[in-house]
Design a binder for these strands. Structure first.
Lengths: 128, 128
DNA sequence: ATATAATATGACGTTAACGTCATGTTTGCA
DNA sequence: TGCAAACATGACGTTAACGTCATATTATAT
């Protein structure tokens, strides 16, 4: 299905219409083509874009940060982008990501040991 | 320095007074003991607690989620806590954490390949 | 040709996590 | 003792990322 309206788009992408319009309003999503009437039309790529945005949100990026990198996934970057600047941004993101990964790893191991402690306690005391 | 007022506390923990009072107001931080005057007094543990909260925020937890687990770091959990319930919460957090770790890992490798692509482009075209 | 459903646009509301005054009391130092 | 610096409390403001009407126009099924 290529060339859909906002109803199908949101259903397939798992977001609300409000979200789509909000993303368009902040320039995160290109606002779909409009026919003579006022309606917007979207494509498969829009669906993919919304899904990618969702993934990046789960990674902890803000919509503004996502705007920094989203184009990399959907445009032919061999084109016009100011390479050095983008490269700088990417390296910054890589740094941030490594920080987060470390913190998350630490948290995970903390969780693990807490869990084990509780499990052992419960094992030792079968009296609930 | 054990037994300080909010000024020293915030300086050592790297947060604002507003933050401390906000955390107290939502029950994330035990509000320091008060003398006859109205002033609150804090200890080294409060500093540690604030730092731990900051770490957990970086991991992407909300203050509410942090409230779920913060006690594990600072109280003798051999005590009164409803073990099975806490264990459930912890396991949920562990699951969430693993999800995040995977997403972050994916993002990191995406970043890597994008970066490499840009680097190679810049290498090939020394004409900026 | 209508009634119902889908879409567009605008405006106001909401939650989290604080920021920023304003005002009044307490403390610490000359 | 006087006075600036520190603290307490209350209230209103702010940003991100949408939610929730309200209203008007367009599309679609009968």
């Amino acid at each position: 299905m290529n060339r859909m309206r906002i109803g199908d788009l949101t259903e397939r992408a798992g977001v609300t219409q409000r979200t789509v319009r909000y993303y368009e309003s902040i320039g995160l999503l290109p606002s779909g083509e409009r026919e003579g009437n006022g309606h917007h039309y979207y494509t498969e790529e829009t669906v993919a874009r919304l899904r990618k945005i969702d993934q990046l949100k789960k990674v902890g990026l803000s919509l503004e940060e996502i705007r920094d990198v989203i184009e990399l996934y959907f445009t032919d970057t061999s084109g016009v982008l100011p390479k050095r600047k983008v490269l700088g941004i990417l390296r910054q993101h890589l740094d941030d990501t490594d920080q987060k990964l470390e913190a998350l790893g630490q948290f995970r191991s903390d969780l693990q040991s807490h869990i084990e402690r509780f499990e052992q306690w419960l094992e030792a005391n079968d009296s609930d």
